[in-house]
Every structure is written in structure tokens, then in C-alpha cells.
Amino acid sequence: MITLLVNSALHKLDIDPATPLLYALRNDLSLNGAKFGCGLGQCGACTVLVDHEPVYACLTPVAALEGRPILTIEGLAENDKPSPLQQAFIDEQAAQCGYCTAGMVMRAQALLDHNSIPTEAEIRAYMEPNLCRCGTQVRVVRAIRRASQPAREAAEASLPR
């Protein structure tokens, strides 16, 4: 029996402890956000946060997750309202097929958690592990910048005049 702490809720699962988190999320918990893209840690479609850091759910056995908080894209929204980052993706229409999108959002969330005002270069470097074949990257960068805008403005406002 494995206990997972997903989006602040505890779940007990009776599955092979070697099962990668991705399958547990999708099939046992019906959380569809994380996607199977490669199963090899090469594309980032499965990205979720563990201990507030982005990991590849396709290569994270549930045995390694006892007691560690897991955050998926389903856990970002508050009171059914998209989170500011999700809203920024919607505002920028930063998706085409959208298969890579949830992974993008999760990695971007980790970036903003660590660095609320990332530069363009920092965004690109941080997002490097995630692939998009539809070519939405320019919009993804824009969405991340948009989400960081309030923090950027706050920082500017607090500068001595």
C-alpha cells in the first residue's frame, strides 16, 4: 500500500511500488493533466511538482513519494478559478493541440515559485527540458512573463524613486 499526497489530499493506492507516478495519477486518481509523451524523461509532457520542484512523473516510482507533497495542474486552481499562471496561458492562448501544455504550466510554476521575476533568458533556460511540436513556445514565454507581471510591477514600485 502506497500513500500519496496529491494536491493536498491523501490517497492510498494498492499498486506496484515501482509504478511511475504518471500512471498512478492518470489511471488511479483520474488526474489527466500530466501526459505520457516519451516515458524517457526527454519531453516534459508529464511534469509535476514534487517537494515544489519539477520532476518527470513518467520516471518517478511511487515508492519514492511517500510523504512528499505532489502538485499537479489540477491542484493549481483555487475555488475552481484558474490560477494566475493558468489564466496567463489562457489570455495568451498559449496552446495549440495542448498536449504539452500542462507540463509547460507546471515547469513554469516551479520557475515562478523560485524566481517571481524571471528574465526572458532565464525563462528559456529553465523551460529547456520541455518540448512542444506545435510551436507554441513564443506564446508560452509570453504567458510566463504575463504571469510574472504583477510581481515585476510590485518590485518596480518598491524601488526608491
Partner: peptide, 22 residues
């Protein structure tokens, strides 16, 4: 520029793909 109807599900983890059908 009407927002795409399919995007909200895609950024919130809704069911959007055949891969998500169970």
C-alpha cells in the same frame, strides 16, 4: 479573436484528449 473553446481544459487538466479517455 474569440478565445479557443478547448484551451481552458488544456491548461487546467480537464479531459481533452483521447489519451485521457477512460
Amino acid at each position: 479573436p474569440v478565445p479557443r473553446v478547448d484551451i481552458p481544459a488544456k491548461v487546467t487538466g480537464g479531459i481533452a484528449f483521447i489519451q485521457d479517455m477512460r
